[in-house]
């Protein structure tokens, strides 16, 4: 039988998320190079209609109320059971909030190797090599993927999405939910949407984004002034939002919002993978950072290794107030 590459389908509010199609695209490319088949694992409640939208040869469907929101325990137990029976060549999970909780749990429970934070997966001289992004994006690790079943958790936004049309209509295989779902120790999962925001940064054409380099809440005024002069809005990296300096609606990145403005001016942001996930598709990225090794320079079109305060001041002088 052909080897299998399994992809866990992430969905939210009844729709597969972008990363699901990125994983399916990645699985397709690897499968094409070695004759494997791509299997999408679709877990949830009332999600059968999603199966037809998934570009995969086979969709394994498990439905159960406890799987409705893909909460960690139920999802991890179900995925573990499926993988134990099917022993695919690769299991690809998203390195998202939902996927993170499942990948490491499953790999540990099965005693399979796991490569996390994967940003590239390709065959080199006949050997499958996964590249993981570590140390805040400053270092890459190339890991040889052995021939035994391996779990890989893949960064969102790192791969091109699969075409929406399945090559051939996939078959749907319904499986019984595992008995353990009747005795879960996770109760009452629900989702909560954020409160309405004053500014929608996903619609802004120009963004002045500030990071920990701004140092204090008082200094945010400088960013506001610059944003006003440029006709931009102020957004931020996560630590500033955690500190309560700006509302959550201004956060760019993995757990914040994905933005694609015409201009993204990053001030004092290091460019951790979780931040880049939210802004690397901006049309023009300009970064000001004191550290020449800051990963933000890897995605920026223009950069200056400089003190952000000096540059902002000089910009304000020129743009007038």
């Amino acid at each position: 039988m052909a080897q299998r590459i399994v992809v866990l389908v992430e969905h939210l509010y009844g729709e597969p998320t972008d990363v699901t199609f990125e994983l399916l695209g990645l699985a397709r490319r690897i499968a094409d190079s070695d004759g494997a088949i791509v299997e999408a694992v679709l877990l949830g409640e009332g999600v059968r209609h999603l199966a037809e939208t998934l570009p995969a040869e086979r969709v394994i469907l498990v439905e159960h109320p406890a799987l409705r929101y893909l909460a960690p325990e139920a999802t991890a137990i179900t995925v573990t059971g499926l993988l134990r029976t099917d022993a695919p060549r690769l299991a690809l999970l998203p390195n998202t909030s939902l996927g993170m909780d499942v990948a490491a749990w499953v790999a540990s429970a099965l005693d399979w190797p796991l490569v996390a934070y994967c940003q590239a997966l390709e065959r080199r001289e006949g050997q499958l090599v996964a590249t993981a992004q570590l140390f805040g994006g400053k270092i890459l690790a190339d890991v040889a993927v052995g021939t035994s079943p391996t779990v890989i958790s893949v960064l969102a936004g790192a791969f091109a999405a699969a075409a929406l049309e399945p090559a051939a209509p996939g078959t749907i295989e319904v499986r019984e939910p595992p008995a353990e779902l009747a005795a879960l120790r996770t109760h009452a999962a629900s989702l909560e949407r954020p409160a309405a925001a004053d500014v929608d940064i996903t619609r802004a054409e120009k963004i002045v984004a500030v990071g920990r380099g701004i140092e204090s809440k008082d200094n945010l005024e400088l960013a506001e002034e610059l944003a006003q002069a440029l006709g931009a809005v102020v957004a931020a990296s996560r630590p500033l939002v955690d500190a309560g300096w700006l509302p959550r609606s201004r956060q760019v990145g993995k757990s914040g919002l994905k933005v694609k403005p015409k201009l993204y001016l990053a001030l004092g942001i290091s460019g951790a993978p979780e931040h880049l996930e939210g802004m690397k598709d901006a049309e023009l990225i300009i970064a000001i950072n004191k550290d020449p090794k800051a990963p933000i320079f890897g995605v920026a079109d223009y950069g200056a290794v400089a003190d952000l305060f000096d540059v902002v001041e000089a910009l304000l002088e020129r743009l007038g107030g």
Binding site: A141, T150, I285, I288, F297, A300, A306, V311, A314
Partner: peptide, 26 residues
């Protein structure tokens, strides 16, 4: 997993650096 090799991200696609004083950069 045993890392085969650690490396720094490639320089490709790296920002064009603006140099000089803050005024020149501005």
């Amino acid at each position: 997993p045993v890392p085969v090799r650690l490396r720094f991200p490639e320089e490709t696609g790296q920002a064009e650096l603006l140099t000089g004083s803050a005024s020149e950069i501005a």
